[in-house]
Amino acid sequence: MAKTLLTLRVNGERQTVAAEPHHTLLEVLREDLGLTGTKHGCELGECGACTVLVDGVPVLSCLTLPSEIGDAEVTTVEGLAKGPELHPLQTAFAEEAAAQCGYCTPGMLLSAKSLLDRTTAPTREEMAEAIAGNLCRCTGYTAIYEAIDKAAERMRETERMGGTQPAAVRS
């Protein structure tokens, strides 16, 4: 099939690529834009590894055609850090050992980010629900909850201090 030109807004940048029109957002991100941080575990919408945010909402990129999302902003794991500054979730995931093999992690981080964008102090139940579509075979989810908790706490602290990030924990 002939490739067609496609324009997407990804991680704050407008990107135009030539892609197969039947290829999913997952395929375009990974193969045409080289953003391989987005993973795939089934390509059937069952595992959540391919989760990205579209205008802040978690979406399964393996079930989404780029043409469906138009001008909406796509956030992948590569867009989570702001320059050299890691997102508090990334730091907390490292400290709490919430990433083992790391394969579900990009999707997990984005589902968690969406949760923290909606609510600043989520309960365990809210966390479980937010990541219910993201399967993890390594952690048993416990460390992930602890990491989300910690990130939420740091983000609340930052908010209270007037928007300054606490010093990076990565020494």
């Binding site: 193969e31 794991v77 890691l86 490292a94 992690t105």
Partner: peptide, 23 residues
């Protein structure tokens, strides 16, 4: 010590290179 794993940063930033990421 409760230290982050040395190889965790690639997992958290999308830069870890799994086999299918190789082109």
């Amino acid at each position: 010590k409760r230290l982050p794993k040395v190889n965790v940063w690639g997992h958290l930033t999308g830069t870890a290179r799994y086999a299918d990421d190789i082109q």
